[in-house]
């Protein structure tokens, strides 16, 4: 009976994943390897192609301005001494930062719907559901991001654009430091060659994690986590029979993800403090008193 139980759970979680995420690894790999009938993504490798992408991929790259009354990204008076070209560059970087935020907000929304479809999640105390999302969404987000990355860049705008790693690296500090650690993680993570069914369980295990700070009913979350982790272990054995150490290697990635999120939260804090830009209210909620 346990065997049957885990198979049902695997199926339910995989279905929830396929239903709720607009992009998945199979889709991303088809686009990245050019094996799709849809148009090739627009390559964004400098400010000029970024601006072209902003115009042509407007629907999915549209960036909201979440500025409060202290002035938005377009407030030219903030940089009175900066030359015009540099100002344009700064504005483009701020817009790019907002595009990243929009994508994050969209993914957090998808992750929430996915979590709700994980059997048992909605039976948890509502405050615990909030806590699990608050601490889990960024780890999950960077896991999903790896599916859209190869060593040269990152698929954006629902596959309509491909932003090069070199271009992201070339941006002014701290923006230029933002993505490089994610590429390094993605290279190591993608070497595990997980498919979407594996990833679905891994993402569910990230979210249903019993050691998040402030959980009300730890043992209930641990029970849920245990059933998902067991399903993941059995599924990996069946799905990757030649790779017996895949499960422990994957569990090690959880520590890398935590480190990646802590580092990311620090960078976002730095941007918030030193740059004339604003943070989406949902992301503010997640980052506030996080670690």
């Amino acid at each position: 009976p346990m065997e049957a139980d885990h198979k049902i759970l695997v199926k339910q979680i995989h279905e929830a994943y396929m239903k709720n995420f607009n992009m998945n690894k199979a889709k991303a790999r088809l686009i990245l390897t050019g094996k799709t009938s849809t148009p090739q993504p627009l390559i964004i490798h400098d400010m000029e192609t970024f601006q072209l992408a902003e115009r042509t991929l407007a629907v999915h790259m549209v960036s909201g301005d979440y500025a409060e009354s202290d002035g938005g990204v377009g407030d030219r008076q903030v940089f009175p001494a900066v030359a015009c070209e540099e100002l344009e560059q700064r504005e483009a970087e701020a817009r790019l930062f907002h595009c990243c935020q929009s994508t994050s907000v969209e993914t957090v929304t998808e992750l929430t719907e996915f979590a709700k479809a994980v059997p048992g999640f909605q039976s948890l105390d509502l405050n615990d559901q909030v806590t699990l999302l608050k601490y889990g969404v960024y780890e999950a987000l960077f896991t999903l991001l790896a599916s859209c990355m190869n060593k040269d860049g990152l698929l954006v705008a629902r596959g309509g654009g491909f932003i090069t790693r070199e271009f992201l690296k070339s941006l002014r500090r701290p923006f230029g430091d933002m993505m490089e650690p994610k590429f390094q993680f993605a290279t190591r993570f993608n070497a595990l060659e997980l498919d979407d069914s594996d990833l679905a369980l891994f993402v569910a295990a990230i979210i249903c994690c019993g050691d998040r700070p402030g959980l009300v009913d730890v043992s209930l979350v641990e029970q849920l986590q245990e059933s998902i982790v067991q399903a993941l272990r059995l599924h990996l054995l069946a799905n990757h029979p030649d790779d017996t150490f895949l499960f422990p290697r994957l569990l090690q990635k959880l520590a890398d993800l935590r480190e990646l999120v802590t580092e990311h939260a620090q960078l976002v804090q730095e941007i918030k403090t030193n740059e004339d830009t604003s943070l989406h209210p949902l992301l503010q909620e997640i980052y506030r008193d996080m670690y």
């Binding site: 929009s102 907000v105 969209e106 957090v108 929304t109 929430t112 719907e113 709700k116 509502l126 405050n127 559901q129 909030v130 999302l133 608050k134 989406h280 209210p281 949902l282 909620e285 997640i286 506030r288 008193d289």
Partner: peptide, 20 residues
């Protein structure tokens, strides 16, 4: 609860990111 208003909202009903 106030501190995580939007997360609560997302959990209790389907809110499109556009509405946030």
């Amino acid at each position: 609860k106030e501190k995580h208003k939007i997360l609560h909202q997302l959990l209790q009903n389907s809110t499109s990111p556009v509405d946030l």
